[in-house]
Design a protein around this nucleic acid. Structure first.
Length: 883
DNA sequence: GTGGAGACTTGTTAGGACTCCG
DNA sequence: CGGAGTCCTAACAAGTCTCCAC
């Protein structure tokens, strides 16, 4: 089977023998959860029980993607737009959003011509793409997969230029030719001997069978529908209308009529978009592959929140390349480009002033009176008694240093050890309890009250469009909870006041009223090249800023999200050449080149982060460029063992088989170095990224992670989803794919406190059921012989059932047991794997949406309400979309 | 090319809301 | 209805990457 085959070379990034949170002795915060990815961890989708095992029976058939286009009339904003559009697959295989049909008919009609056009284009494009895909897939796959394939397909080297679709078949060529390795030899390079084998149980690995990679997507192609058909419609309402000019926001600025607004929007919106597009490589304009990308982008554009506008643009914009060229601007982000024309908001809110409780702590057994300020900080500390931080010396030390400053040198309290915070702790527990006791009615009332007060801060109006603000609260005072062994943990994070806060707002917008009487904002700015609404300097590290941005559902975020995924998709077209290039450099005489090559290989193969340099006053964590000698161990047989603390001090532990030149290079880099020295001493992220940019416009290290994650999802979904399965089974497939991505990206979570208890409970229940089963079997036996059932374990008499009835019961019980066992395994399996992070940040939502459409899975089963809002830009993707 | 400022994305977790089950 | 378990989200920490001055 191809699977077996794969095993050898499979790059499969991730067979992690054990992924565990940083277990180092010192960081007890993270529980050492070696999540064993032993056989259990990876099972075929069908074997993987869903943790919550829902079956949504509700949607057989048509009701799938629902996104009610009610957004249009929503006056309050996206949040109101109910996402329940009905996605219907028409007989032809085309699909449409039913809601459009009703509500938007006229619009739709108008659009038709455009659509037709688009359709033609897009179908062409799709065809091209599919051909390309099938032919070039090798190149596109994440390294892991790909490496396997190299064994098989030798290719000629070509310069690093995106492949044109017409040249697709040559695509692969470049790689090999650069290597000037004949096919057969190539195999050697990546082949069994040099393959990227991983030592983990094969079950764990994310395998991508070669042939599956090549597999085409037959039916999908035929099921075309105008790409942006629904787009324009169903999202018109994404941005809430201003009609609900909440609060003090200057209603004048807001265009009142939706029509007008749309127009306005168009204008404004386009600018940034097109500009952004410029960021994409212009150099490659001509290449068809690039065109492809552009095209896609363009099409997608239609899917952005303001569809009408986009659609209009399309009409106007002519050819893709035209459009592309037309918008030339310097690349980069946050880069001096105009992001908005008008910006209105109400600033931010601050936590209420501290209310002293008057509870005294004990010092050497005696109550001590504290000033409100001192008491506030003491309370912050007291309340953390049950956290792991209390075991950390550094935490206490830092706290004491800061608190002591507040107490003053001559204070009665002279050391922390003699302080007993129990009275405050107890008081706090009681307060918590009281809070719990509040009736749900009262709670609701309180919530509503709060909401009312905050409503005006929740929205900003950007170029006439009402958008949700992400976080509009100043952070309250607290003790700094750095992760891992952060040198600053425990420091007092002082209260932020308006004097700390810089506001960014439109020139003509009213300056937000300072919510604290007698104080004023630190500064008012009118910088339309940035998207933040406010910031203050982080009191813990004044070099850093804390920003207030728009929420994830805003079009700013949505656009950059889309760009991110488009860039990752573009990498597909370059990846073959990139791999060829770095493979060649594995043996470069130029040590910098060689290090770049090996680092890129790790990033591609293992989805490592770039690894920026860090200051001493941060936790000691590393990424690819900052790996230390001791983080990688050569274990023989071309195996490298990685073990280091990455972002958030999460431990990355993985043993991988690499190609021989890489293995040798690592030995060379380690030579004559001591622990603590950098493995890639000639490298840093800027050198690496500068190099990557030579290979693909705007390419940076993190793009590989996005690419790897999204590609894997797309690939697994398409391989593992079976036709005709019910929704529950499909969801399992999705969860499993999601899980593999999480493993690749090393997204971990701590095991919940109640985990082991839950497992115990489950297995007890299973045992019970097994006992029942046993009894039933005996009864069946007796029933067949015409005897009455034995008394139950409770001593009661049981009903006399027919053998058939008993058989039925047995079947039911067996099914129940099976389900519970699967649930239990899934639970165990996922106890340390966090699926959410990749869903939010790494998986192109269009993959998910398109898959849901194809397999009639309601999108709500996969995306929560907020994710649906965040991914509004992706919801009307064509069902045929492939990453 | 280096280092720092600045802006934006990615990541984990705590705790509240919601759901399920008896 | 209440408690346990699950799901979601807000909060905020910690990354990445760009730009710019020297």
């Amino acid at each position: 089977m191809s699977r077996e085959f794969d095993d050898d070379d499979g790059p499969v990034t991730f067979k992690r023998s054990s992924v565990s949170k940083s277990i180092q002795s010192h960081s007890e915060v993270r529980k050492s959860t070696s999540h064993s990815n032993d056989g259990r961890s990876y099972r075929k989708s069908s074997d993987v029980p869903s943790s919550n095992g829902h079956n949504s029976s509700s949607q057989n058939g048509k009701l799938v993607l629902s996104t009610k286009a009610s957004a249009v009339e929503s006056s309050v904003g996206i949040s109101k737009a109910s996402t329940s559009m009905v996605y219907v697959r028409s007989p032809r295989g085309t699909s449409k959003f039913a809601s459009f049909e009703n509500k938007k008919e006229s619009l739709l009609e108008k659009k038709i011509p455009v659509h037709v056009k688009e359709e033609t284009n897009s179908s062409k494009h799709l065809k091209e793409e599919s051909r390309e895909d099938s032919e070039d897939e090798v190149d596109n796959m994440p390294l892991s997969v790909r490496m396997k394939m190299n064994n098989i397909n030798g290719k000629k080297a070509t310069p690093i230029v995106p492949k044109k679709s017409s040249e697709n078949s040559d695509d692969d060529i470049p790689l090999s030719s650069r290597l000037s390795i004949p096919k057969a030899q190539k195999g050697q390079q990546y082949g069994s001997s040099a393959s990227v084998k991983q030592e983990r149980p094969s079950t764990l690995s994310v395998k991508r069978p070669l042939d599956s990679v090549k597999q085409e997507r037959p039916s999908t192609l035929s099921v075309k529908r105008p790409l942006d058909k629904s787009d324009s419609l169903h999202f018109t309402g994404k941005k809430s209308k201003l009609s609900d000019p909440a609060q003090s926001i200057n209603a004048k600025q807001i265009s009142v009529k939706s029509e007008v607004k749309v127009e306005e929007e168009d204008d404004n919106d386009d600018v940034p978009l097109s500009r952004r597009m410029n960021k994409l490589p212009t150099s490659v304009d001509q290449s068809s592959s690039l065109k492809k990308v552009t095209n896609v982008t363009k099409v997608n554009k239609g899917a952005t929140p303001s569809f009408k506008k986009k659609a209009a643009n399309f009409k106007k914009s002519g050819t893709k390349s035209e459009q592309f060229k037309s918008t030339k601007l310097p690349p980069g982000s946050g880069d001096g480009q105009k992001k908005w024309t008008t910006l209105v908001h109400n600033g931010i809110i601050f936590p209420p002033p501290y209310k002293p409780h008057g509870i005294k702590i004990l010092y050497k057994g005696k109550p001590v009176t504290l000033t409100p300020d001192q008491e506030e900080v003491a309370t912050l500390y007291a309340v953390m008694r049950d956290t792991d931080y209390m075991q950390k010396q550094k935490f206490k030390e830092n706290f004491w240093t800061d608190w002591r400053k507040m107490l003053g040198k001559n204070h009665v309290i002279q050391n922390l050890e003699d302080c007993d915070f129990t009275p405050i702790y107890d008081w706090y527990q009681i307060e918590k309890e009281k809070k719990k006791q509040i009736s749900s009615k009262e709670k609701k009332a309180l919530r509503e009250e709060k909401l009312k007060q905050e409503e005006k801060y929740m929205w900003a109006i950007v170029d006439g469009v009402k958008e949700k603000v992400g976080n509009f609260r100043a952070e309250p005072p607290g003790l700094f909870r750095g992760r891992g062994e952060h040198p600053k943990m425990g420091k007092v994070k002082r209260r932020i006041t308006p004097n700390d806060v810089v506001i960014n707002i439109g020139k003509d917008a009213p300056i937000p009223e300072c919510p604290i009487p007698g104080e004023s904002w630190k500064e008012i700015r009118h910088d339309n090249t940035v998207t933040w609404l406010a910031y203050w300097n982080d009191p813990i590290n004044p070099k850093l800023f804390k920003y207030i941005f728009l929420g994830a559902s805003s079009s700013w975020k949505g656009q950059s999200d889309r760009e991110k995924y488009e860039k990752a998709r573009m990498l597909k077209n370059y990846i073959g050449n990139i791999r060829a290039a770095y493979t060649k450099d594995f043996v470069s005489k130029d040590i910098t080149k060689q290090q770049i090559a090996v680092a890129t290989y790790f990033i591609d193969k293992l989805a490592l982060r770039a690894g920026n340099d860090k200051d001493d006053d941060e936790a000691d964590t590393v990424g690819c460029c900052t790996l230390k000698v001791e983080n990688v161990t050569a274990e023989g047989n071309n195996k490298l063992k990685f073990d280091f603390l990455g972002k958030d001090s999460i431990r990355y532990e993985n043993t991988v088989e690499v190609v021989l030149p890489v293995y040798n290079a690592i030995l060379k880099f380690q030579k004559d170095k001591r622990p603590g020295d950098e493995l890639f001493d000639q490298l840093d992220t800027s050198i690496l990224n500068n190099h990557l940019k030579e290979l693909m416009p705007n390419l940076t290290a993190k793009v590989f992670r996005t690419f790897n994650a999204s590609f894997t999802l797309d690939d697994m979904l398409n391989k593992e989803t079976k036709d005709g399965e019910d929704v529950a089974a499909n969801i399992l497939v999705y969860q499993n794919a999601n899980k593999q991505v999480a493993i690749i990206c090393n997204h971990q979570r701590s095991v919940s406190k109640s985990h082991s208890g839950q497992i115990t409970k489950l297995s007890e229940k299973i045992d019970e059921l097994k006992a029942v089963l046993k009894e039933l079997k005996i009864d069946l036996d007796r029933a067949r012989k015409g005897k009455p059932p034995l008394k139950g374990s409770d001593g009661k008499n049981k009903r006399n059932l027919s053998p058939e009835a008993i058989e039925k019961k047995i079947d039911q019980t067996e099914a129940k047991i099976e389900k519970m066992q699967r649930d239990m395994m899934t639970k165990e399996d996922l106890k340390t794997v966090a699926l959410g992070t990749s869903r939010i940040n790494y998986l192109d939502p269009r993959i998910t949406v398109a898959w849901c459409k194809r397999h009639e899975v309601p999108i709500e089963k996969i995306f929560s309400k907020t994710l649906l809002e965040k991914f509004a830009w992706a919801l009307d993707v064509d069902p045929d979309f492939r990453f």
